[in-house]
Amino acid sequence: MKAVPTPHFFTGRHMLAVVLGFFAVVIAVNLTLAFFATRSWTGLVVENSYVASQHYNEELAQAHRQRALGWHGGLSYEGGRLVFRLRDAAGAPLPGMQVSATVRRPTHEGEDRELFLSPSAAGVYAVPVALMPGTWAVEVHALGRDGRPYRRDYRLWVAEETRP
């Protein structure tokens, strides 16, 4: 004679275990996401957005003046050097500028650097710097002898070195 299996019923204890398990998973996921959110980029672009907004019209006017000059800049990373080239509207190099660059990662903080580029040729400014592979946001400021400023933001991709 075969034994008759006892029926298993879904009881209140089973329901309690399911509900507690569900909320345990939800809480664990939320804590994990909160942990990684606090360890990554804060998303802060300016310290005080109200104060920054008060200078917006001045920045807009400066951008119009810069566009009227017709200057054209180019930024590259060549052989461990950050190289900036600046030319006037006619394509002639612009020598004698004081050039600085703020280099930062667009998605996280901690690798930000302020660099001062030295003239290496007519209209060419460079600085040796070791940049890790990946995307960099570079803000370039140049000031001419006559006091005319130039400012431009660049995105720079540094490729990973291939080694034999």
Rank of each mutant, 00 (worst) to 15 (best):
A52N: 11
N30I: 06
H108R: 12
H14A: 07
D112N: 02
Q62M: 11
M132E: 15
Q98R: 15
A142G: 13
S100H: 00
S118N: 12
V129W: 00
A126R: 09
V18F: 12
T6H: 10
A90I: 08
A3C: 04
W136I: 01
R155V: 08
G70D: 12
D88F: 13
M97N: 03
A52H: 11
E109N: 08
Q98P: 04
P95G: 06
G73W: 01
F10G: 08
G73L: 00
G73P: 00
G79E: 09
G73H: 01
A28K: 03
Y77C: 00
G134V: 06
M132Q: 14
G80M: 03
A121V: 06
A121H: 07
W136E: 00
R104C: 08
A17V: 11
E111P: 06
L60D: 11
E78V: 11
L44A: 14
P106A: 02
L60M: 15
A37I: 03
V46L: 06
A121M: 03
D153A: 13
E59M: 10
L156G: 05
V83H: 05
R105D: 00
E111F: 12
W41P: 10
E78F: 00
E78Q: 09
F36I: 07
E109D: 14
R81I: 07
H64Y: 14
S49A: 14
V4Y: 10
I27V: 05
R104W: 12
Q62I: 05
M1S: 10
G110N: 13
D153R: 15
F36C: 01
E161G: 14
